[in-house]
Design a protein around this nucleic acid. Structure first.
Lengths: 230, 230
DNA sequence: TAACTTTGTGTTGTTTTAACACAAATTATA
DNA sequence: TATAATTTGTGTTAAAACAACACAAAGTTA
């Protein structure tokens, strides 16, 4: 007979982006030996609950959000001292959301929920900094070969928004003309006829949208999104 | 209090390659409701055992092998009916080995252990066909951006071996001259002065080796292995 | 010894990438 | 209200990477 004394949790690394800054969602623990510490949102799964459902539930409960993109990141199982009562193995999920779409509200277990700039994240509880690093790495590399940047932006965006997102997350300069040429050549970004004056000074720009059905169709025809350059 | 009734297992998708054919390791179950069925090697983890250690132990126990390459593939948690007594969540690992280095021997729990050509895999127990598909996909894509093919070959190999490995796993033709040029340009494959006459007819070829320290050094200098072409 | 098999090697046209600058439309400021 | 400042929008060109292609050399088999 198996005498495992291990519990399964899910945790989420939720990235948000706004005005050139990449944020990650953390919650402040209300109970337990890490009360008051900031950790990634997450919690134990229910007996008959699929893993994905568990993450979505926790995000709803602890921060009041629903994400745009969610995928499994990896399972972190060796943090044996997370809880005195049992070993905890955690399945970490990578998620993207547009922070503008929600007002964070801590609910059940969480005392508070907050966006931290990734560059200024404090020391988190458990092995959550390690998870965050891995997720941050995943975001950077995935940005180059999957069109996930759009999940961080408004539905309609300026080309400069998209460009700045790539610049700031990948931490390098991008040639505006080459970037635009490449993205437009894919045919997955559509120009709307709306023009916006941005609030700031300068010439107004057109708004664009990501054409997801078109992208899905192209993928079926073996299209490979890929954008890497200096 | 948490009343989870879930157990954690690890499973491994172990690929082997020989003479143009890709194989995967399966074991035949001795006990339980799936007795006699073929499944991927794996089993429950011990309370204080790291996940990686658990996979290595199971591979040793069930098939008598030690792999060349091992990385986490993903966690499959929704196969709620795997066992009547409790839900099982399984962390799947992706592994590569040179089959020549071992004689398979089923040991503790397994009745038999066997290499199946991936193209002719039978229906496996649990959700193991799904895991295999995902691992197969991972192998194909990873082959193009990480030098993992060498973990499937002998330490010394003919250039044609490497080329055939790529051809057969990626299921496409490769231009021999362009392939060789590209691989050699990386500087991570060294020509030995041994010449081998292959057993078959034809001009003897030089043996090559993968220079892993050199590769690791290049990676530090931002080198990116990448080989995709028609 | 002729036929067959496998290794080894270079060139060229095409495509992709990288580098680069200025005019147009608006807002802010003097 | 003119001038400066800001942001959008757009093409060309040189360099690098890629794709396509064929034949001689060294051995084995018939």
């Amino acid at each position: 007979m198996i005498d495992q004394n291990i519990k399964i949790a899910v945790d989420a690394i939720v990235f948000g982006y706004e005005k050139g800054t990449l944020y990650v969602l953390a919650v402040q623990q209300r109970f337990g030996k890490l009360a008051d510490r900031w950790v990634l949102p997450g919690g134990f799964i229910l007996n008959d609950e699929p893993l994905l459902t568990a993450v979505e539930r926790e995000l709803k409960e602890e921060a009041g959000i629903t994400v745009n993109y969610l995928e499994q990141l990896g399972t972190f199982g060796d943090d044996i001292n997370r809880d005195e009562r049992f070993r905890v193995i955690s399945v970490a999920y990578f998620a993207l959301v547009n922070p503008k779409n929600f007002v964070l509200k801590a609910d059940t277990d969480a005392k508070d929920a907050k966006w931290f700039p990734v560059a200024q994240i404090p020391e988190l509880g458990y092995d959550h900094n390690e998870m965050l690093d891995m997720a941050h790495q995943r975001l950077k590399s995935k940005l180059t070969y999957q069109p996930i940047g759009f999940d961080l932006l408004d539905q309609e965006f300026l080309f400069s928004d998209l460009e700045n997102l790539y610049c700031s997350i990948l931490e390098r300069d991008i040639d505006r003309r080459n970037f635009r040429k490449k993205i437009l050549s894919f045919g997955i970004v559509t120009e709307t006829d709306k023009v916006v004056k941005m609030g700031a000074s300068g010439r107004p720009g057109k708004l664009f949208t990501f054409n997801k059905p078109k992208y899905n169709q192209l993928v079926k025809e073996n299209f490979q999104f890929d954008i890497r350059f200096a």
